[in-house]
Each structure stands twice: as C-alpha cells, then as structure tokens.
Amino acid sequence: MRKIFFFVLFILIGCGNEENEKLKNTLFEEPGLSTSHNQIITLYSNNPYDIIINYNAPCGYNKLKFEFDLGNVLLITTPSKNSKSGKIKIRLNSKKSGKGVFKIILTDNCDQNTDLSFQISVQESLGYDGLLANYDFSNNAEDKSGNGNNAEVYGVVLTKDRNGNDNAAYKFDGIDDYIVISKEFFNIGNENYTISGWFFIDEIKKQNQNILNIIPSFGLSLDWNKTDNPFVVSFSLNTNPEIESWNIASSIGVLGSVGEKKWHHFLLSKNKNTWGLYVDGVGNSFYFNSNPIDKYFGVSLGKKSSLDSSSNYFKGKLDDFYFFDRLLNRDEIKYLMEN
C-alpha cells in the first residue's frame, strides 16, 4: 500500500507541475523588447550614448542583465518591479575602440527570458577638449557632448545619413522646418572657435538657404546661394546680433564642387580676427578689423532665426554638427571629414 501511495503522489505532483507550466504558457505571453533606435550603432570612445528600449512583460518584470565588452552600461530608467510594460533608458560608456555587441536580457516573473542585441562599432575619439556641443542626430537632437545643450526640432524628420544609417540625420522641407538650440552656449566673440558639420542640398537653385544662424539672426550666419553671392556657401558677421546689419562681413563665400544629391562637409573657424571657411577641404581665410561682441547666444539650424516670415529655410539634410571653443589641428579636421 505504501508503494502505491507514493506512486500516486508522484503522479499527482508531476501532473501539478505540468499544469503549472501550462498555466504560465496559457496566461502569460513571453516578454518582449523593442526599440526605434538603429541596431547598428557607431560610438566614440569616452563619449556616452543613450538608448531607449520598450519592454512588454505580461507576467511582470523581474530583472535585467547586460552584456557589453567595450565599456560600461548605466541604467538611467529602472523598470518598476512587477510592471507589465514601459521604457528602459540605458547609457553606454565605451572605453575602448573596436567592434562588439551590446545585449540586454529581460527576465519576467515566470522565469521567461527575452533579449535584444545591438551591433556596436567604437571609434577613437578626436580630442574632446573644448567641445561645446555635438549633434550626431542619431535618433534625436540631443547634445552628445554631455554639456546638456540639447536641441528642439520643429517639423524636421529623421532620415539616412551619408553612410546609409537609418534615423541618423535630419531632413528639412525648405518650407517651415528648423532646429533650435535655445541654451546660450556659443560665444561669437570668443578668440577661437570651430564649427564643423555636414549638409546635403535638395534644391540647389533655391535662394537664401540658411544652414546655421545664431539667435538673434544678425551675429553669425552660414548660408547657401545668397542673393548677393549665388551658388556658393558663404558666411556673414556682425558686431552686435541685436542690430540688423552685417557690419563686419556680408556673404563671404568660397567656391567648391557643391551640388545636389551629394553630402558636403563644411568647417568654419575663428582665430582672433581671422575667419576660415572650407567646404570639402577647399576654402580661404579672411581677416577683418572688427570682432563680434563677447557674448553667448543660442543657435538655429535650417532657418534665419528671426520673425521674418521668409526665414530663409533650408531644403535638404543636415548632420554631425560640432561646436568647439578652440581651433582644431589637421588630424582632427581630417577625422571629422572622414568619419
């Protein structure tokens, strides 16, 4: 009788375990992870990168695990225990160059796992001394320098960058799209500075297309196809942006092989009273007797930052804007042009 009792008990326990497994599988779907971020990501060493991931855990969230052999992972937004869905914000801090994989693994209360992987390429950073702001436009307009000079987007949409990466540049419609960095982080009267960026013109004949402008408009401006200097990239300067004039320089341009359906790199630099403008590595330096006011301003991209209804809207794409409060050396400039 005792043997029969144990045998029956064993069967009942076994059946109970099977029923529990069926209950888990029936009542609770497996968890899931998803993201709108490109899952092929290029990072720069010692430059943090944020990723937002959506999670779905019908059985309730339990724990996370990360695998990243090129640096450290910081969990900025932690999911609530037993929560069924939400967002996870993660910051990757790459410490060495190379190629690898970042993997996030989520476990729910039913011991079910799901994972999501990103292909990571970490490149050597250029010298970040003096970096005021960096906008790589990968999924958003946040300042990747860590200085908090985040931009706000108006109408622009994410698109492919010059390397074919999705959601890694912004497209402007030439009608009412623009980007604004309202925080006053850029001093136009600083003794030295460098601005670097990439642009792609969709409509080369459209006049007065503004690439970059400080706020308010009349201080420093970079434009394509100005009325008084057509079919060149040009810059204008004023001593005081609050006075509507260009009393230092107006539409000083450089010739280059700028055309439609092609990405172009520009570099605008200031060394005391000498400004340099280069497009795809070709350009000139210009000396002026006057200097702009020593004051910090915000920046707009893609339109003249004024209440003027025309506003000189840019039609095309912009990407990878860097602002430095110093001059760059040849190797650093080469790095920006080739990466």
Rank of each mutant, 00 (worst) to 15 (best):
97 S>Q: 14
144 K>M: 13
219 G>P: 00
309 S>I: 15
205 K>A: 13
318 L>K: 05
63 K>P: 00
206 K>Y: 04
187 N>C: 09
220 L>H: 06
25 N>T: 13
155 G>S: 06
315 K>C: 10
90 I>W: 00
39 Q>I: 05
11 I>S: 08
141 A>M: 03
151 A>R: 11
153 V>C: 07
325 D>N: 14
275 W>R: 02
148 G>I: 15
117 S>E: 15
15 C>V: 11
50 D>Q: 10
149 N>R: 10
261 K>H: 06
122 V>M: 10
104 I>H: 00
321 F>L: 13
3 K>G: 12
259 G>H: 09
15 C>A: 10
293 I>C: 01
167 N>G: 02
260 E>P: 05
176 D>S: 15
77 T>M: 01
155 G>I: 11
291 N>M: 09
39 Q>W: 03
84 K>I: 10
69 D>R: 14
5 F>G: 08
316 G>I: 03
276 G>K: 03
236 S>I: 14
61 Y>A: 07
227 T>M: 05
173 D>Q: 13
186 F>Y: 09
182 S>Q: 08
140 N>T: 14
91 R>F: 00
126 L>W: 11
237 L>V: 03
138 S>V: 15
232 V>K: 05
240 N>M: 04
282 V>W: 01
123 Q>I: 14
295 K>E: 10
197 G>A: 08
57 A>E: 02
7 F>D: 14
35 T>C: 01
87 K>Y: 03
161 D>A: 07
169 A>S: 12
150 N>L: 09
99 K>T: 09
4 I>R: 15
238 N>M: 02
142 E>S: 13
250 S>V: 06
27 L>T: 11
35 T>G: 01
309 S>D: 10
287 Y>N: 14
128 Y>T: 12
46 N>K: 15
330 R>G: 00
334 K>E: 14
191 E>F: 07
11 I>N: 11
161 D>M: 12
97 S>T: 15
327 L>W: 05
260 E>R: 12
185 F>R: 13
149 N>I: 10
120 I>C: 00
123 Q>L: 15
187 N>W: 01
85 S>H: 09
9 L>T: 08
129 D>Y: 06
99 K>Q: 11
225 N>Y: 07
318 L>V: 04
330 R>V: 09
158 L>R: 08
26 T>L: 10
188 I>G: 01
164 G>A: 08
255 L>N: 14
230 P>C: 05
44 Y>C: 05
125 S>P: 07
1 M>T: 15
316 G>D: 04
188 I>N: 03
100 G>M: 07
59 C>I: 04
64 L>F: 07
18 E>A: 12
190 N>G: 12
224 W>I: 11
280 D>I: 13
9 L>V: 10
8 V>Q: 07
174 G>Y: 08
216 P>E: 13
191 E>V: 13
20 N>Y: 08
56 N>Q: 07
83 S>G: 01
252 I>K: 07
205 K>I: 15
25 N>W: 04
230 P>A: 15
239 T>H: 06
68 F>N: 07
56 N>W: 09
210 N>W: 09
205 K>M: 12
87 K>H: 03
